[in-house]
Amino acid sequence: MTTLPLPESFALTIRGYDRDQVDERLAELHEELHLLTLDRDAAQSQAELLAGRLAQARTEITALRGQLDRLCQTPADPAAVGTRVSRLLALARSEADDLVLTAHQRAAALRAEAEDAVRRTQVQLRAIDEVLADAESVLNERTAFPVATAA
């Protein structure tokens, strides 16, 4: 969990804390909170993008499996063709098997990469949310005390 650097205390003046110092620190906290919110939003957008890519890869895998099933259901009869064509057909089947294997491996790697990226982004989002909660808590504590004005 990341904590924001806060001063131990504000300088005391005759009637309380130095108003300029408190205002300056609150402005810094607001800016930090704004930047953290932007970081969180960017990480969330990236997570959504990666989740979309994962869904797209899954759709592609499903389509490829459907094509494979259709191809496997209607095999050519080797007895009906000549020796040369049989060899070409066997070679084509071997190449097709290699392509399918490669496609499955690539899809699995893409799926694992996307899922890992989503997990990392979710961890980052949780960390940013914790920092934001801490910052809001500190900001609420700082703004909950009335600041005495110098007379």
Results as ranks from 00 to 15, higher is better:
Leu29Glu: 02
Leu88Glu: 15
Leu132Asn: 04
Ala79Leu: 06
His104Tyr: 12
Ala103Gln: 05
Ala55Trp: 06
Ser86Val: 01
Ala127Ile: 01
Val123Phe: 00
Ala76Asn: 04
Arg126Asp: 11
Ala135Glu: 03
Arg65Ala: 03
Leu36Val: 04
Leu110Trp: 02
Ala103Ile: 00
Leu38Ile: 00
Leu36Cys: 08
Gln67Ser: 13
Arg15Gln: 09
Gln73Phe: 08
His104Ser: 08
Asp98Lys: 09
Leu101Trp: 00
Leu88Gly: 08
Gln73Lys: 13
Thr102His: 09
Glu60Phe: 04
Ala96Gln: 02
Ala148Trp: 05
Ile14Ser: 01
Arg84Tyr: 03
Asp77Lys: 07
Leu125Trp: 04
Ala92Arg: 04
Gln105Ile: 01
Leu33Lys: 11
Thr74His: 10
Asp39Leu: 14
Gly66Asn: 06
Gly66Met: 08
Tyr17Pro: 01
Ala76Thr: 05
Asp69Lys: 13
Val138Met: 01
Arg142Val: 09
Arg19Glu: 13
Tyr17Val: 09
Thr62His: 08
Glu60Lys: 02
Ala109Tyr: 07
Gln73Glu: 11
Asp134Asn: 08
Asp129Glu: 12
Gln46Arg: 15
Thr62Tyr: 09
Leu110Ser: 05
Gly16Val: 01
Ser94Arg: 15
Leu125Val: 13
Ala43Leu: 10
Ala148Cys: 09
Leu91Asn: 12
Leu29Lys: 02
His34Gln: 14
Cys72Val: 07
Ala109Gln: 15
Thr74Cys: 06
Thr121Val: 03
Asp116Gly: 15
Thr13Ser: 01
Asp129Ser: 08
Ala112Thr: 13
Gly82Cys: 11
Glu141Ile: 13
Ser137Asn: 09
Leu91Thr: 07
Arg106Trp: 12
Arg15Phe: 10
His34Trp: 13
Leu110Gln: 08
Asp23Met: 10
Leu132Thr: 09
Ala112Val: 11
Pro146Gln: 07
Glu31Trp: 09
Ala90Pro: 02
Thr37Val: 10
Arg142Tyr: 04
Thr143Val: 04
His30Trp: 03
Gly52Glu: 09
Ala112Trp: 05
Asn140Lys: 09
Thr3Arg: 14
Arg84Ala: 07
Leu139Met: 12
Ser9Ala: 13
His104Gln: 14
Ala114Glu: 02
Asp69Ala: 14
Ala135Leu: 07
Pro78Glu: 09
Ala112Met: 10
Gln124Lys: 02
Pro75Tyr: 02
Ala151Asp: 10
